[in-house]
């Protein structure tokens, strides 16, 4: 990782085909993770447990989508096509997000009978946030300079999100028996998909070799430590090591929920992608 040659621009990256392929794969994973989770956050808008929290939560969804936009724009610079097309016109099998972020907020639809689960919202956003923090901290030393700059910019915003969720998780887990039970159910649900976060797909070896990011296993270790501290602080039991998941989001394997998300996201744009909206 340390003594890698640093790549300073998209044009320079394009001159090294293997490097470029690994970089694009990594960018898709990060863009799609943030984009789909921000979408799930946006479904909560207007339906939160307290008006003030509804407002606060929406900023987190916006910031997260803002980060996705930065990654899509980096892909655009690398010749992958328009950022709007990348977000809205790819098929589900082309998406590289982890399964965790595509899971629905609960049952029902955001327009009709949304039985959304706030316990899952808090735990998913918090534990994903901790994962994202380990990933961005690793990117600060990436060989691709535009990525190190972006990671440095994103980290303070992410820190603010983590502060938010940490307070909420603690308040709910300690506040009442029902709060504790709901948070524990959320943790267990997140745990079923957590293993998938650290699988970086077929290009992982190259990503590490080119100094783009450290290995999934290294990041998983760091995340486990952070998660352990977080759960300890709320006096929550440790659920053990997350198991390997059945589906691998990074390999383009997804649940039918993602297809539904993508249909909704692109419903208007697909009327006429060539038009100005």
């Amino acid at each position: 990782m340390a003594n890698q040659h640093s790549i300073t621009s998209a044009d320079e990256a394009k001159q090294h085909p293997e490097y470029l392929a690994a970089l694009k794969e990594l960018l898709y994973q990060m863009a799609d993770d943030d984009f789909i989770l921000a979408y799930r956050g946006s479904e909560w808008l207007g339906l939160g447990p307290h008006i003030e929290e509804d407002v606060a939560f929406s900023s987190i969804s916006q910031d997260t989508m803002g980060h996705a936009v930065m990654f899509y724009e980096m892909l655009e610079e690398l010749g992958e096509g328009k950022a709007d097309d990348l977000a809205q016109l790819r098929e589900a099998s082309a998406f590289r997000n982890a399964i965790l972020v595509e899971r629905p907020n609960g049952t029902g639809h955001y327009k009709e009978n949304p039985h959304f689960d706030w316990g899952y919202a808090v735990t998913r956003f918090y534990l994903y946030g901790l994962f994202k923090q380990t990933r961005l901290e690793s990117l600060v030393h990436s060989s691709y300079q535009p990525l190190t700059l972006a990671a440095r910019k994103m980290l303070p915003e992410l820190g603010y999100h983590l502060y938010h969720w940490q307070v909420w998780m603690n308040q709910l887990a300690v506040g009442s028996q029902e709060g504790y039970d709901r948070i524990m159910q959320g943790v267990e649900k997140v745990w079923q998909d957590a293993g998938d976060l650290f699988v970086f797909g077929s290009k992982e070896v190259d990503m590490v070799k080119f100094g783009l990011i450290e290995s999934g296993q290294t990041l998983a270790q760091r995340w486990l430590e952070k998660a352990k501290q977080a759960l300890d602080a709320c006096v929550l039991p440790w659920p053990g090591m997350p198991q390997t998941t059945e589906l691998s989001g990074r390999a383009g394997q997804h649940t039918p929920d993602l297809t539904e998300v993508l249909n909704t996201l692109s419903e208007v744009y697909r009327i006429d992608p060539a038009a100005n909206w």
């Binding site: 979408y39 936009v69 950022a83 709007d84 909206w277």
Partner: peptide, 11 residues
């Protein structure tokens, strides 16, 4: 909100 037809419009 989820259906807005571009990244900028969504935000």
């Amino acid at each position: 909100v989820p259906k807005a037809p571009s990244l900028r419009r969504k935000l």
